[in-house]
Simulated assay, not measured.
Amino acid sequence: MEFRDLKAQYDKWKNEIDSAIQKVINTTTFIGGKEVNTLEQRLAEYVGVKNCISCANGTEAMTLLMMAWDIKEGDAVFVPDFTFFSSGEIVSFRGATPIFVDVDKYTFNIDTIKLEKAIKKVIDEDKLTPRVIIPVDLFGLPADHIEVERIAKKYNLKVLEDAAQGFGGSINGRKACNFGDAATTSFFPAKPLGCFGDGGAIFTNDDKLAELLNSLKVHGKGVNKYDNVRIGVNSRLDAIQASVLNVKLTAFIEHELEDVNRVYRLYNEKLEGIVEIPVIPEGYVSSFAQYTIKLKNKEERDGLQVNLKEKGIPCMAYYTKPMHRQSAFSEYEYDNNDFEMTNKLCETVLSLPMHPYLFEADVNKVVTEIKNYLLMKAR
């Protein structure tokens, strides 16, 4: 059993993927070209925005936005405390200060009540300038973007939707990557839409921002790459990865999003009342980058994780150390008491095998082993 079965996906779409890669090799257009342009157009259309700017990976997608918005020392950027390191890393990389915010106990996404309190605190202290909110679509579930956008408008802040895990999710039909002033996603292989290496993309309806980003990602180019009008970086999605993504996007649209939600319903049906199962608010759709349950405490979580792995069932604990306790952020002062929910989640969550190619028999095996373990512990 695989945690996320990329081999099963490849086996199903092998002919199309192999043909797409060979086509790029035959043309020898490895950087840019038709495959990249086609992918950007298709992604923009799927998400429902005017512009998609592909780049080297999800982290650089966010970094490029920090550059475009001139985020710098003295600026405050608000980031959920329970997320992958890069969401805060890109803030410090620009010399700005990440302000970590606790998350909601049910959705694992940024707590909007605590977010507004954190913004007010920064304003009252008058040491930093609030600039950006980065809501993360954790585990495939969109954050509460409607409320985040309301708060951002109230305090005149930019919003960067970090949809690295969220591509394909939606709120009342509005797709992830279509919220905030701009959004980013990652095409890391294990993501809902993943390539065969690294890749990322930025989405925005702002044409001027898109023009700036297209310059920044290619050494600050002007009319061409030898006309350099600003300091930029080298962050391009190569044509082979784009060719793979064009095939996988078709698969994602045709069946994968629907199939992964079928697996989610199977898990929920069989695990309800046994452990705390994922909560998907009304009107929301998750793309389930992970299916994550909650156990009673760290001992129970860690014990179950060991037991499942001994039975040949891969599982992962995301994330065992909160952002505010990462050594890289030790120069900042955070009150551990401000992160009650994040601290608890770090000790109690466990992600189970989850992907569109998971059979019901596999789900039954996982559920049976969870039940057996918890029953044994209860004796």
Rank of each mutant, 00 (worst) to 15 (best):
H324P: 05
V148I: 11
K175G: 09
E269C: 14
E40A: 14
F359M: 15
A76C: 05
Y10H: 02
M376V: 13
L115S: 01
E149D: 12
C55D: 00
S287G: 10
P281G: 06
P130N: 07
V101Y: 00
G283I: 12
K371Q: 14
M354P: 00
V79E: 04
M341D: 03
A289C: 14
I240Q: 06
Y319S: 03
L115F: 02
F30I: 14
E299M: 12
N228Y: 12
L374H: 05
P278S: 10
T368A: 14
L374Y: 01
G283P: 03
E340T: 13
E310S: 06
T320M: 10
K225V: 15
P135Y: 07
F85P: 02
D75K: 08
T27H: 11
G33I: 03
V159C: 09
L350S: 01
D335T: 06
T348M: 00
P192M: 08
H145Y: 07
E282F: 11
E2G: 03
V367M: 04
T59W: 02
G95C: 04
V233Y: 03
I231N: 15
A176R: 08
N261H: 02
L64N: 00
D81E: 08
D75P: 00
V24A: 01
I171S: 01
I71L: 12
S186I: 04
F187Y: 06
Q22F: 15
N234M: 14
Y318C: 10
R174T: 11
T348F: 00
T368V: 12
L65E: 05
T129I: 14
Y155A: 11
S92Y: 08
S170V: 04
G58Q: 06
E360L: 09
F188K: 10
M323Q: 06
Y226P: 09
A176V: 13
I134L: 00
K175Y: 14
C346S: 07
